[in-house]
Computed example of a mutant assay.
Amino acid sequence: MKSILVLNGPNLNLLGTRQPEVYGATTLAMIEASCTAHAAEAGLSVSCLQSNHEGVLIDAIHAAKGKHDGLILNAGALTHTSIALMDAITSVELPLVEVHLSNIHAREPFRHKSYIAPVALGQICGFGAQGYLLAIDALKAHLSGTEP
């Protein structure tokens, strides 16, 4: 069974209470449960990790090589600042889909630049928690060779 690692970065542990007008009312636990159920229906397994620390996310990306077949990453604000995350993704050579709950391109100008996007299969943003499920579907298609 193919395995996906879902990583969430800084402040995403506060989902459901943090700026619900921007990020919605869905909690991180609800997103992780949805990911697990959706992946199981698709014949995939999922592991989830959230950290407020860049180094923990980098270590998880490194550890994913040889253990997982693909990655989903919502790096939060680190999306716009972390060359180190970009380098970690490149170094493990695993397919990755970047996810954001809000449409980062419709927000403040500093959020328009992603250091993750150039090393990702693609970016899904603006669809709230559903974006994670879309990312699972995209990774499944990529891993099975059925993407358009």
Rank of each mutant, 00 (worst) to 15 (best):
K140N: 12
H142Y: 15
N103T: 02
G126L: 01
L133N: 04
G126A: 03
R107I: 02
S102F: 01
E108H: 10
L101V: 05
L101R: 00
A135L: 07
L134I: 10
I136V: 13
L133R: 08
Q123L: 14
C125Q: 10
I136Q: 09
A106P: 01
H105D: 14
S114V: 10
Q130W: 11
G126R: 01
D137F: 05
A117F: 09
S144N: 13
H142T: 09
V119L: 05
L143M: 14
A106E: 13
A117I: 04
H100C: 04
L121K: 09
S102V: 03
L143Q: 09
A138T: 15
I136F: 06
S114D: 11
L121A: 02
S114G: 11
R111H: 08
G145A: 09
F110V: 08
P118T: 08
A106V: 03
G128N: 02
L101Y: 01
K113P: 02
H105R: 14
A138R: 15
I124E: 00
V97P: 00
P109Q: 12
R111W: 05
S102Y: 01
L134K: 05
L101Q: 01
L133A: 10
A129D: 11
I136H: 05
Y115H: 14
I136Y: 08
L139V: 09
P109V: 14
F110G: 09
H142D: 11
R107C: 07
V99D: 04
E108R: 11
A106W: 01
V119Q: 06
Q130C: 10
L143D: 07
I116A: 02
N103D: 15
R111D: 03
S102G: 04
C125F: 07
Q123S: 15
G128M: 03
I136S: 07
H100G: 05
I124W: 00
A129Q: 11
A141S: 14
A106S: 14
L121N: 02
G145Q: 07
P118E: 09
L139M: 09
A120V: 04
H142K: 12
L139A: 05
S114W: 08
K140Y: 08
E98S: 03
S114M: 11
V97D: 00
A117T: 15
P109D: 14
D137N: 14
A117V: 11
H142V: 06
P109A: 13
F127P: 02
H100Q: 01
I116F: 03
I116Q: 06
Y115R: 12
P118A: 07
I124V: 15
A135M: 06
G126Y: 00
D137Q: 14
S114C: 11
L133W: 09
R111T: 06
C125E: 03
A117W: 04
L101K: 00
K140I: 04
S144F: 08
G122F: 05
F127D: 02
G128D: 01
E108P: 06
H112W: 12
V97W: 00
L133Y: 10
Q130A: 13
K113Y: 14
C125Y: 01
Q130G: 15
R111G: 05
H142W: 15
P118K: 11
V119G: 06
G131M: 09
S114I: 05
S102N: 12
V119F: 06
A138S: 15
H112Q: 15
